[in-house]
């Protein structure tokens, strides 16, 4: 079941990116009479690469900053900022990604920059929230033991808290990446190069074949990354001994 899912996802994604012509017969019925069925204004491969690049450019700083903030507010020195941080995260969640994207345009103009800024800002919240939840979920008795065994605060953080929070942190990154992939699609309305271009082109030129092509491809990539992160989370859980070991 899982293997089949992987095969289909990788097959469809790879096929659409590398051999788009193969899908011509399938998409032809949806294309307007005489119009093109396969998007040809840019190669899907290059659009995919720039789509993923937008996401990566935003997610790396997002992850680093959100994690640092979560660590900061869970230390004694930062405890006073915790209520404020939670309020901020809570308010931030009511900001739709489209709003963040649209408001970045007057600041940064059109293109990749406002998109990356929006993805970066919106990516912070899920990672911060999950990292916070993960760090706060470490049982008090475990923290106390670490301290009582003579670990320095830094050792407790690196050897106990972070490994225990890791699955939840990864879960946060996974949520952020899924949102970022979706928002990057909308980024093509502000002229960032992404797969959204294909869908928007389909919508504006009344060509459902484009919409299906772009939609299926972005959907597959999103599910693929989602599943890949799921695998990573499983591994993290197993490595940290919290998942019952599979019977041999």
């Amino acid at each position: 079941m899982t293997a089949l899912r992987w095969i289909i996802l990788i097959g469809v994604t790879g096929g659409l990116i590398l051999f788009p012509a193969l899908f011509e017969p399938l998409l032809r019925p949806f294309a307007p009479a005489g119009g093109p069925a396969i998007y040809d204004r840019a190669s899907l491969a290059s659009l995919t690469v720039s789509h993923l690049a937008l996401v990566a450019l935003a997610m790396i700083p997002s992850t680093l900053i959100a994690l640092s903030l979560a660590i900061l507010v869970t230390r004694p020195a930062g405890a006073e900022f915790l209520p404020m941080a939670r309020v901020l995260a809570n308010i931030g969640q009511t900001f739709p990604p489209v709003a963040v994207l649209a408001l970045s345009v007057p600041l940064l103009g059109f293109g990749a920059r406002p998109t990356v800024l929006a993805l970066f800002l919106y990516g912070l919240l899920p990672i911060f929230e999950n990292a916070l939840a993960g760090l706060r979920a470490v049982p008090g008795s475990v923290l106390l033991s670490g301290k009582a065994m003579g670990m320095t605060p830094r050792q407790v953080l690196a050897q106990v808290e972070m490994p225990l929070a890791l699955p939840l942190i990864l879960e946060g990154i996974r949520i952020s990446i899924v949102i970022a992939l979706s928002t990057a699609t909308i980024g093509s309305t502000v002229a960032a190069r992404s797969l959204g271009e294909v869908i928007i082109a389909g919508l504006t030129s009344n060509n459902p074949a484009y919409v299906i092509q772009g939609g299926v491809l972005t959907g597959c990539i999103a599910v693929l990354l989602y599943d890949a992160f799921g695998l990573l989370i499983e591994i993290a859980k197993r490595l940290t001994g919290r998942e019952p070991q599979q019977a041999a």
Binding site: F30, V178, L181, S182, T185, I186, G196, I199, I200, G202, L203, P208, V211, I212, G214, G215, V216, T218, G219, A222, V223, Y226
Partner: peptide, 21 residues
Amino acid sequence: LTLIQTIPSIALFGILIVPLA
């Protein structure tokens, strides 16, 4: 349901156009 939630919004909006048309 998780699968659906993972699909980017424009993609889902766009794909639904086809069957509804």
